[in-house]
Write a protein that binds this DNA or RNA. Structure first.
Length: 481
RNA sequence: GUCCCCAUCGUCUAGUUGGCCCAGGACUCCGGCUUUUCACGCCGGCAACAGGGGUUCAAAUCCCCUUGGGGACGCCA
């Protein structure tokens, strides 16, 4: 069993979800759980993300038997360090005629796709370089044209594979594209790297999210091309947003770091996640990971995509507080959460010149320690603006911050000032409501320092609350007229 | 648009070898009890088998169609 997170963003709840089921299955059947970093996207992968993902999984107690940090017999466990292996396997397929070079540029293919969509056709590769003559290939290479290696998918027939949860899934081969295996930068795509590494690492059960079902035929055909034994495929249901779409940070707090910073217990998060699409035979809701492993079977997985409900996860967390942990353990949790050293240290420069005695601290910083802050509509309305305008502007600002990657004070200040200018608002008319929205008070340390320490999820939540407050104000405004 | 997957209360789900289910539990919400208050706890309530055809003595459970939802269709994973 393995989990292959891609270090291209914050540690995602979906990663933990899949890791959890892989681990449970491995533990149940005495198998090994492998952590393999799938960092073949050179542009988006970052070492910081990798470190954060590993830290988050460890926080949850989802420990791996083999991985980049602990090593193991099938290393290296970072795909970027296995490039040579992937390349060799791509060459093998090239030699055996199962793959070919494609010289089409990205622009060329984008244009092709655009045309196909225009004509309401299914966007797909047209096989333009699938049967190039050797002379043509030589000529292109002599020209120094960059190329990718594509797999030669059969054009007819059907590929059938067994999903252990759903039974046989069959997909017509003509529906499947000639997948790129090796990119022009020499790195493999997910499909090649995944199949090659899974085989080499002795992965017997591929437990991954449902979104991979439609590309599984490619993987099956690859196994066959290499003449390898196929693993068993288990596709877990996809975690969903409230509206049913694939879970995303737009609609949900999906970063595992958020849960930690909001004071969730790792055991409670794991417990809640186990109940997503799975149930105990006796319908118990509160159980340990060991209990989960003991009772785990695929038969108890239900396939409807479960919606992630932070409300219910909070209830689970509360259950742990009052029933699972004893006073000592609960006290320890509180101590480490409230007096988290990193957070306390971050506040030091903000409060030092503002306090005379230790007792001033709590009053000065309480909004760093609470979830939502209370906002009175009347407090946030600038004199020269309407509630309606405020609501709309805040909404646009919240959207802007969602897309903001750099959350440092300087960067926040820059984008915010730019934003205010673009909105044609007076700086003070925007900054005061913003300060109240974020801190719940009219006076605070420098706003952007505060926002950085609060972090994206909390700022986001409070901004949304302020939008709601402004809308409420707008309603009353309308009535009075 | 094409292909694939899925379908029980608002949400998570039990139910799946068809009958014990006019569908059970949990979250949320609403009552009540307990409590100086709040919370917890306890008791109670609202609330679902998407629709239509079959198969069968009998269907939430099996089959088909429709509808709905989701996913995939990237030199991202």
């Amino acid at each position: 069993m393995r989990i292959g997170p891609s270090p291209t963003g914050e540690p995602h709840v979906g990663t933990a979800y899949i890791a959890l089921f892989n681990l449970a299955f491995a533990r149940k059947h005495g198998g090994k759980f492998v952590l393999r970093i799938e960092d073949t996207d050179q542009e988006r992968s970052k070492p910081e993300w990798e470190a954060q993902i590993m830290a988050s999984l460890k926080w949850l107690g989802l420990d791996w038997d083999e991985g980049p940090d602990v090593g193991g017999p099938h290393g290296p466990y970072r795909q970027s360090e296995r490039q040579q292996i992937h390349r060799e396997h791509a060459m093998k397929l090239l030699e055996s005629g199962h793959a070919y070079r494609c010289f089409a540029t990205k622009e060329e293919l984008d244009a092709l796709r655009a045309e196909q969509i225009e004509r309401k056709e299914t966007p797909r590769y047209d096989g333009r370089h699938r049967d190039l003559s050797q002379a043509q290939i030589d000529a292109f290479i002599a020209e120094g044209r960059p190329f990718v290696i594509r797999m030669k998918m059969p054009t007819d027939g059907t590929t059938v594979f067994r999903d252990e949860l759903r039974g046989d899934v069959s997909i017509e081969n003509e529906q499947v594209d000639d997948q790129i295996l090796l990119k022009s930068d020499g790195f493999p795509t997910y499909h090649l790297a995944n199949v090659v590494d899974d085989h080499l690492m002795g992965i017997t059960h591929v437990i991954r999210a449902e979104e991979w079902i439609s590309s599984t035929p490619k993987h099956v055909v690859l196994y066959e091309m290499f003449g390898w034994e196929k693993p068993k495929f288990i596709h877990m249901p996809l975690l969903r947003n409230e509206n049913g779409s694939k879970i995303s940070k737009r609609k949900n707090p999906v970063s595992l770091m958020d849960y930690k910073s909001r004071g969730f217990l790792p055991q409670a998060v794991v417990n809640y996640l186990s109940r997503m699409g799975w149930s105990m035979p006796d319908e118990r809701e509160i159980f340990s990971f060991d209990d989960f492993v003991e009772n785990f079977t695929f038969e108890r997985i239900s396939l409807g995509g479960p919606k992630f409900d932070i409300e219910k996860m909070s209830w689970v967390n509360g259950k742990y507080y009052r029933e699972v942990l004893d006073e000592q353990a609960f006290g320890d949790h509180l101590l480490s959460y409230v007096f988290d050293e990193a957070r306390l240290r971050a506040l030091v420069p903000l409060v030092r010149e503002r306090m005379d005695k230790g007792e001033d601290f709590i009053g000065l910083t309480e909004y760093f320690f609470s979830g939502d802050v209370e906002i009175q509509p009347d407090d946030i309305k600038p004199k020269k603006q309407t509630f309606k305008a405020l609501a709309q502007t805040f909404e646009r600002y919240a959207d802007l911050l969602d897309r903001q990657d750099d959350y440092s004070p300087a960067a926040l200040e820059e984008v915010t000032r730019e934003f205010v200018e673009k909105e044609e608002w007076k700086t003070r008319d925007f900054f005061m409501p913003l300060r109240i929205a974020v801190t719940g008070r009219k006076a605070s340390p420098p706003l952007f320092d505060v926002m950085t320490i609060l972090g994206r999820p909390l700022v986001r939540r409070r901004l949304r609350n302020a939008v709601a407050a402004a809308k409420l104000g707008a309603k009353q405004e309308g009535k009075n007229k």
